[in-house]
């Protein structure tokens, strides 16, 4: 736990396809600091369980643990998206407050704690930094087409999902991992990512598609 809180300004190239990458110098922004996976693997607490503890009994210690792990990450994520320190601080706090208030809406069969917190931070960022709305579907809408009934043994635990997604990310070819990371950590349309990497837009898009297919395959989804 404490290890994961270490602040480190030097971008690490370890993990997620950045293994000894011959990263071209013109791409410093492509270097996203990522902790070596093994640093967390052993001590990584059950974050989903902690969110459930907050939901079920307003567990303050569980909240403090979640805060310790996620608040600095959320803030760093926001700063990568162009927020200044004050704004990132404010939205990171707001994200953690939402976590406390909305913990009851967390569904561990749908997403891991990290994924759920990512979506909260993302939505607050779109609202506050992009000053834009995020259109979202409404599952209670009469026009909504629900999922097909899932066989009980067909559903996957969020923990299992995390492991598989992480494994698939690690196995992505460098060139795909790079565009995936830029897509999530920079508020840029794919056209600008293409310019930054000096690649045709079609190449960026096809790398993203290939990466998505690999992740979906890892999650056991059928190809259409």
């Amino acid at each position: 736990m404490l290890q994961s809180l270490t602040l480190d300004n030097s971008p690490s190239l370890a993990g997620f396809g950045f293994r000894s990458s011959p990263a071209p110098q013109r791409l410093p922004k492509a270097m996203i600091p990522i902790a070596a996976p093994e640093a967390n693997a052993v001590l990584s607490p059950d974050f989903s369980g902690l969110v459930l503890a907050v939901a079920q009994r307003q567990d303050k210690q569980a909240f403090a643990q979640l805060f310790g792990h996620y608040a600095p990450r959320v803030k760093s994520y926001l700063m990568r998206h162009g927020a200044d320190d004050g704004q990132a601080e404010e939205i990171a706090q707001e994200t953690m407050l939402s976590l406390w208030r909305k913990a009851g809406m967390f569904d561990p069969s749908k997403a891991s704690a990290g994924t759920w917190i990512f979506t909260i931070a993302r939505n607050l960022r779109i609202d506050a930094i992009r000053k834009s709305r995020r259109p979202e579907f409404d599952p209670d809408d009469p026009a909504f087409v629900p999922d097909r009934e899932q066989a009980a043994d067909d559903s996957m635990e969020a923990g299992e999902m995390s492991v598989r997604v992480r494994g698939a990310l690690d196995s992505l070819p460098e060139e795909q991992a790079e565009v995936v990371k830029l897509s999530f950590f920079e508020d840029k349309p794919h056209g600008e990512i293409a310019k930054q990497l000096d690649l045709p837009l079609g190449t960026v898009k096809s790398r993203l598609r290939l990466a998505m297919r690999r992740i979906r395959t890892a999650l056991g989804e059928k190809e259409e």
């Binding site: 602040l7 996203i32 902790a35 990450r73 994520y77 997403a111 994924t115 990512f118 995390s162």
Partner: peptide, 9 residues
């Protein structure tokens, strides 16, 4: 979520 989780703040 995984990318954010694995980030070094």
């Amino acid at each position: 979520g995984e990318l954010m989780d694995a980030m070094r703040p």
